[in-house]
Design a protein around this nucleic acid. Structure first.
Lengths: 208, 208, 208, 208
DNA sequence: AATGAATGAGGCTTCATTCAT
DNA sequence: TATGAATGAAGCCTCATTCAT
């Protein structure tokens, strides 16, 4: 079940699609460095080695480009949640896996994630709504794992929503520094975070 | 030792100062809602009930206004760190206090904090540097508490920098939803977070 | 009862209003010469001796400028219909007066009328609808005079709507050449047209 | 003596010619609906089911397409004038025939006529001049009939040029509404118009 | 015959800021 | 203190057309 971002637009050639993807990735870096609003089309054209006409031939509009960057990373994030759900395992293990996958994505797509966490308010209308829903969907995956842990007595009786938000903050916020800390791999950070978080919500010793 | 953001500018009348502060606060809301770059001077003038000339009389420039919003909240944040340091207590208690104060600020200045966490890349030159330093200064306060806990055996032997970043992410990230969760006070959330975090990094049972 | 085009916009200074009117009139000439779509903002700025910013300070948008040109002439046209209605007289005399007033307007505002007869399809949304209604209103004034003449036996039993359209075509179409035929005044043309049209629809000799 | 619009261009296959004609007719509708300048090549391609390359293969340039639409209708109009001239009959009858033919063309080619009456200023250079001449040629045909009627005493001593312009206005202006008045055929309208116009310029009773 | 990627000038509009009043 | 007219660079985007394939 492929979870692609958009569709129903007219079919394009594979070449076009590849070029578009390259533009999306390159532009994510520019947005991450300079900000979405502060980056002009002219700069994007230059960086991508295209004239304005050709640029628009691929991206449709600046906001569509922004949405594509969002989709790129949200596709991965939602896929990771699916993978974890299908992998099974104890709630503690699942939570650790979720974090490991999430930080891996942040590490591999630092620019996309920066854009997605910083510039999502620039999305409007349908695009904003679609993104909000996908984001919410992931949050619920985290909540579900927490609830399962609570039900199994593996976790304390914490508020699942509030705790999910704490977890998300702890992990998402790494977009600000993760790429800069070269000596630590995403996996190391994920391990450290899971250690803190799982201990932090662990059930009473009797259950361990 | 007052830790104010601005200085060396020529002294203005108290009336001017008050009016300026009002503009800063009102504008923070507009920026939080619409984004810094997407909000024009014209809109700020309208919201503040001023013509362009008068508006510039108070704010100097758009970026100076942005910096003022940053200062407003950073002043409070740094003051809170001072207060905690002077209050003393165990590292665990200090960490809890830091979180309580921080969430209180986020709760009381949701717009300013939003702006400060979203739009800081729009600051340039000296203003960006100054802000970066003040932010770093706060982070070190958190690290210091963690290091003290480790030294005292109250906390496990975690990486203080990494753990501080985890703590900051968990708390800062609340700017996205804290104001919207009316039933929970900032204090309740801080308590829940401290529970998770302190347990998460607690030292071996022998030390408790 | 003033029949102004637009209103409820924020009040502006008399100076602003005067300048705006001058821009509207000057621009009408440029549109008439070069066409609405083919005339760029840059050209309008140059002709009016303004920078782009100042230009937009007065006109709001290109389409609003177009609508203002329409209003200028429609205001006059509708006022002329009112004048004729209040002047009284036989239907034949009224029809002649309508024509005299209409050609006088076309003669005095050749550019505005050209624009209004050529570029009205460029109006969109509310502006288009409002214009359509005002145009229809004038047409009904003509129809009413024709109907009165038929009822009085002064005119043959023609189709009032169809005949009004014939009358309008004959008169409106003069926008293409009226200004160029200097030797004939608008009044002369109106006289000749009334001679043709009134004879053309005159009732049977018994009524004369 | 065939009066075709274009010529001297290299001969193309009959297939090419047919396809080109279809494009001209289809595009006339699009221009009539949306305006010449406001309609882009992309839209024309889509409507005609062609890529840009193929489209240009047939039309040469946008303005050439516009000229072709003009020619299509001017060819018919001039042919109608020839037909009337060769048919003979009294000036009154000839004038009625001219109107009947003209409204028939407007009825059968509403889009082409709309384009021709609205967008002729978009023609430039030679194309504009050629069109102006052909238009003038038709006007002279009308004037000639009027002059003949005056000479024969069948019409009053009106100004032939001015009267021709009145007649043209009355008939041409129908392009705005003729297609929309389904219940009336073009022939009915022509009859009503001829009744008005011929009576309007009829000579003194002694001549009838 | 036909495709569609590419050009780059130009489209309309908004921007932050200044300054005469 | 305050106004709002003016600047002109820059904003995003579309245009008609060409050309390699």
């Amino acid at each position: 079940m492929p979870r692609t971002g958009a569709s129903d637009e007219p079919r394009r050639s594979a070449n076009w699609e590849a070029r578009r993807d390259a533009i999306i990735d390159t532009s994510a870096g520019v947005f991450a460095r300079g900000g979405y609003h502060a980056t002009g089309i002219a700069e994007l054209c230059e960086v991508n080695g295209l004239g304005k006409g050709a640029f628009y031939h691929y991206i449709g509009s600046k906001e569509e480009l922004l949405a594509a960057i969002h989709d790129r990373v949200m596709d991965e994030v939602l896929l990771s949640a699916d993978r974890v759900a299908q992998a099974g395992g104890s709630p503690s293990a699942q939570l650790a896996m979720l974090g490991d996958e999430l930080l891996d994505i942040i590490f591999r797509y630092p620019d996309h994630v920066w854009v997605f966490l910083h510039e999502f308010p620039a999305l409007t209308g349908e695009r904003a709504e679609k993104f909000r829903l996908r984001r919410r969907e992931y949050e619920r995956s985290v909540e579900a794992v927490l609830q399962a842990g609570i039900d199994a007595g593996e976790f304390r009786d914490v508020d699942p929503r509030l705790t999910a938000l704490a977890w998300l903050g702890m992990h998402n916020y790494t977009y600000l520094w993760l790429k800069a800390r070269g000596r630590l791999s995403a996996r190391d950070v994920a391990k450290a975070f899971a250690d803190i978080f799982v201990r932090g919500i662990a059930g009473s010793p009797a259950h361990r």
